[in-house]
């Protein structure tokens, strides 16, 4: 039996004018580390708020740990840990006081579940008498995770836990999640960072309130249909403009150091032809190489598919 399941969940705001979630269905197995990947405004937080019983869905059915989110919300609240995207602990209470407060509220003690949070807590223990509001961003995030874990929840909901956190702390954080997964806790984590997707067991790509794809990161990458190439030249912005003019290219997207491109008709000599064309257009230091697509490439591909099908639908 899945630990979290959603069936045709929909949610609208402003009396139906703003659609937040359309017909979402998926399920998460016990002990799974599941990632919800999508840009800001995709509907990630609405989904979290429904699953943590803070928001009522307009339609559909969802269960967490076997309990219905609408009928049996009391049971769910005893069994889940939630870390909202915005830091929402008491800023004027100290680290220790916050932790003790949430432990008591869940009818437990810090001592009882200390082994679960130990690895994380030792890092903030030197500041245990400091008001939570005066901690640094990374410390705040660790404290919030401790507070969400203090009652040893069955399911852990983490809404964009790494947004606004430095790269080193982000890496640390994902390592902590792996440890928690080893403890058998089901984890649903959302993130706008595509590079974090590969750290999850399974991911759902969400955009405009719809799920575009659910699979393991490897499977999602494998289903990318076309051979992908990375291309660079001395002047990247004119290169991008020129590439977009070319009829033989199917897609052109800028990815930092390289532009990622696919061809309409991919033949063995297509890259060479392209380079020749571009060299004639005065581009210097041209470099082109085949690459394996990342989650972000898949996301963009699925997003254009979704837009096209919507356009055709209208």
């Amino acid at each position: 039996m899945p630990d979290v399941s959603l069936e045709n969940i929909s949610k609208t705001y402003n009396k139906g004018k703003t659609i937040a979630l359309r017909d979402i269905s998926f399920s998460i197995e016990k002990g799974e580390l599941f990632g919800l990947i999508g840009p800001d405004g995709a509907g990630k937080t609405s989904l979290f708020r429904i699953l943590t019983t803070l928001l009522l869905p307009d339609a559909g059915k969802a269960t967490v740990n076997g309990y219905d989110v609408v009928q049996q919300y009391r049971e769910i609240r005893k069994r889940v840990g939630y870390m909202p995207g915005k830091f929402s602990l008491y800023q004027d209470l100290s680290v220790e006081e916050n932790l003790n407060f949430f432990a008591t509220v869940f009818n437990t003690t810090v001592k009882e579940n200390y082994n679960l949070i130990q690895d994380i807590y030792v890092q903030i223990a030197p500041f245990k008498n400091r008001p939570a509001g005066k901690l640094s961003g990374g410390m705040k995030q660790k404290l919030a995770l401790c507070c969400a874990l203090i009652h040893r929840p069955e399911v852990l909901f983490l809404d964009e836990p790494t947004t606004g956190v430095d790269t080193v702390s982000r890496k640390d954080f994902w390592q902590m999640l792996q440890k928690l997964k080893a403890e058998g806790i089901t984890i649903l984590v959302s993130t706008p960072y595509m590079d974090e997707a590969s750290l999850c067991e399974r991911i759902a790509l969400i955009q405009n309130g719809s799920i575009m794809s659910i699979d393991t990161p490897q499977q999602i990458i494998q289903m990318y249909p076309d051979p992908l190439f990375a291309i660079r030249a001395e002047n990247m912005s004119t290169l991008l403009a020129d590439l977009r003019q070319l009829q033989l290219l199917k897609s052109v997207y800028s990815f930092g150091d390289y532009h990622h491109i696919t061809f309409v008709q991919n033949q063995e000599n297509s890259p060479q032809e392209l380079v020749q064309q571009l060299a004639q257009a005065q581009h210097l230091q041209l470099e082109i190489k085949p690459i394996t697509p990342g989650i972000e490439d898949c996301f963009i591909y699925l997003m254009t598919q979704q837009n096209e099908s919507q356009r055709n639908g209208n």
């Binding site: 009391r74 609240r77 915005k86 800023q91």
Partner: peptide, 13 residues
């Protein structure tokens, strides 16, 4: 405003 009420609402309080 601060959001602490959200955190309280997901507890058995």
């Amino acid at each position: 405003e601060i959001g602490t009420i959200e955190q309280i609402n997901v507890t058995p309080i």
